[in-house]
């Protein structure tokens, strides 16, 4: 839990770094809508190609973005599998009988162990995963020897494959877009962008300035508070308490004994922080200047126009049903 860094901002020099955060936030939102308007794999492939081109022009390492996709890899696989199994439209592409036999089960267990051991290498994890799945398929398909426990039909329809590829690509594009946003925008710029975009809210009595300050202070204190929770847990573990163990009743007791000190510290902290802010001339609701004056420049205009162009393109594609 140490050294948690807010967001995943990585310094760089590409054109995406020079854009006003507002432009990026709005462009990403619009592009997401545009992606959701697309209706065919061909269209999505084109969109995916455009996303890759944006990455290349923006000098963003594709490996970096791919690494950012890791946490949602499971989600992608799940989506894919779900679509393949449950969509029963279109012509049948695959219709095989998979068998759980004595031999296939034994080999399956052995194969799983081999796979788990190989993943310990920490390299090629994703490739190994696909290799494993392929292996499972081959084992269940062909090793039909020994006592047969049960069989089931593995049926894949044309639409199932299509939909699963469709949904996965769509998810990939959307996540790539939001990764690009957080990768190229500092957290401070992001909150400032949100703040400026929320300016109109002042007509219903919400000060976007104070709101942005609240967001950025919360962001700033998340790592500190996690660190503190860690310390308290360690302190209590050294006195024999362990949240990971014990009965439910004990666990609840221990969680309370974690929360109480955390709240007390948090109250003290907020009092200190208010003093520190006030002593540095902060007055709630009063106008402040900012170190980074947001500047909507020529580049922003170009990106805005291109974004609108892309949105128009995807609306046209949908209406005219091209591809």
């Amino acid at each position: 839990m140490k050294n948690i860094i807010i967001g995943q901002y990585i310094p760089g020099t590409g054109f995406l770094y020079k854009l006003d955060p507002r432009t990026k936030i709005i462009a990403v939102l619009i592009l997401m809508v545009a992606v959701f308007l697309l209706k065919s794999i061909t269209q999505l492939m084109i969109a995916f190609g455009i996303a890759i081109i944006i990455l290349i022009i923006g000098k963003i390492s594709i490996v970096r973005v791919a690494r950012g996709l890791k946490p949602i890899f499971i989600l992608l696989v799940f989506t894919f599998v779900f679509q393949i199994f449950f969509n029963k439209e279109g012509t049948v592409w695959v219709d095989e009988t998979l068998t759980f036999s004595l031999v296939s089960l034994i080999v399956l267990v052995a194969w799983t162990i081999v796979w788990r051991l190989l993943t310990k290498l920490k390299k090629f994890k994703m490739m190994l995963f696909f290799l494993y799945i392929a292996g499972v398929y081959l084992i269940l398909r062909y090793l039909t020897y020994g006592t047969i426990f049960s069989t089931f039909n593995f049926v894949v329809h044309e639409k199932g494959v299509e939909m699963s590829i469709f949904v996965v690509i769509r998810l990939l594009i959307i996540i790539t877009l939001s990764t690009v946003l957080t990768l190229t925008t500092k957290p401070t710029d992001l909150t400032q962008g949100i703040e400026k975009l929320m300016r109109p809210l002042k007509y219903i009595g919400i000060s976007s300035d104070d709101f942005a300050l609240i967001i950025s202070i919360s962001l700033r204190y998340i790592p500190t508070i996690l660190d503190e929770a860690n310390k308290i847990m360690l302190a209590q573990a050294s006195r024999g308490a362990d949240i990971a163990e014990g009965k439910l009743k004990d666990k609840i007791k221990q969680i309370i004994s974690l929360l109480v000190p955390m709240f007390i510290i948090a109250f003290k902290r907020s009092e200190d922080l208010a003093d520190a802010m006030e002593s540095r001339n902060f007055v709630p609701g009063r106008e402040r200047t900012r170190i980074y004056d947001l500047h909507f420049g020529l580049l922003d205009l170009m990106v805005a126009l291109m974004t609108i162009g892309l949105l128009t393109g995807s609306i046209m594609a949908r209406v005219l049903w091209i591809g």
Partner: peptide, 21 residues
Amino acid sequence: DNQFVGVTVRDDIAFGMENLQ
């Protein structure tokens, strides 16, 4: 820890000046 307002060092040094406009 209880007087660091900014998300980064740069923001924190700026905080007082921002308030002074």
